[in-house]
Design a protein around this nucleic acid. Sequence first.
DNA 1: TATGCGTGGGG
DNA 2: TCCCCAAGCAT
Length: 347
Amino acid sequence: MSSNNFTNQLLDWFVNNGRKYLPWQLKKSPYSVWISEIMLQQTQVKTVIPYYINFMKRFPNIESIAKCELDELLSYWSGLGYYARGRNIYKTAKILDKKYQSIFPKTYDEIIKLPGIGRSTAGAILALAYKKKYSILDGNVKRVLARYYRIEGFLQKSNIQEKLWNLADLNTPSSNVDQYTQAIMDLGATVCTRSRPKCFICPLSENCLARFYSEQDKLPTRKPRTKKSIREVGVMIIVDNKKSVLLEKRPNNGIWGGLYSFPELGDGQTINSWLDDNLREPVEKITRLNPIKHSFTHFNLLINPTKIKIENKPKKYRIKPRYFWHKLPIDREIGLAAPISVMINEL
DNA sequence: TATGCGTGGGG
DNA sequence: TCCCCAAGCAT
């Protein structure tokens, strides 16, 4: 038998139940697989679809990214989150343009070196775009394997990871690897879901150990999370009489890296001291706005905005280089974090 | 190797 | 309202 039961049952199931008409499956190329795989990291299909369509309209190929400004690329990523992915796409496009004549490389060793591409994404590109026998191990696959083989222990532990990679390799076939790869992701996304899995329609249920022991809800084992901390930050929404707003470009590392936000008050800094240090313009009106709650994976953020109206904005050389004036409304020019985008639209 | 990095939706 | 987390990677 060239491939096992698990693999054949999944391939059979895929014929009638797999997803074959997602936007990135229609005109499949290494480029479309690359972009979609990056967008899909830690992000659900439903969320990605509109971003993918808009992105591909503006950036149909590697060259179009290599020629654009990072700010514009990040504007197409605004709201999608994990912005390092967008910055890494930009870096990778530059590398591909320079070293590979804008042709996506075909070997694992070359692909794995590209920024933002790890083992699983490299495997997905090789399997889906080139039909080469490489495995993936994303959240869906981990869940399916952990249940089928009843793997206990936290997924993030290295010995569990190794075990799962070995099982992934074991089941990945050399023929129809593209269909198999899509099939196991589809099964995880639509049948072997985190809560209330649909075991009654699952093609693998017969030999699934989690089902046998009724442990679907316990597997994969979740790590207890520590309570989220709350951070608080004061921001200033400074607008002049011609509807320009002052924005701060955030450094590339850290939260919202490379995006634009409102100027923040430092620790212990007051609005007046900030204005003295940075603006030195007469202020027309100061209004305290309602605080905004924003929740991240690791902490909750409380944004305390203050709106400051001024008559005329100072000349560019008089403000620090990280500050920029932007005409309102802002439409697809720069990257904005989700809550900042909401606040700007309300101005 | 443990943690930082977003956001929106489900329960 | 709150907690969980969804097609991971980089450091």
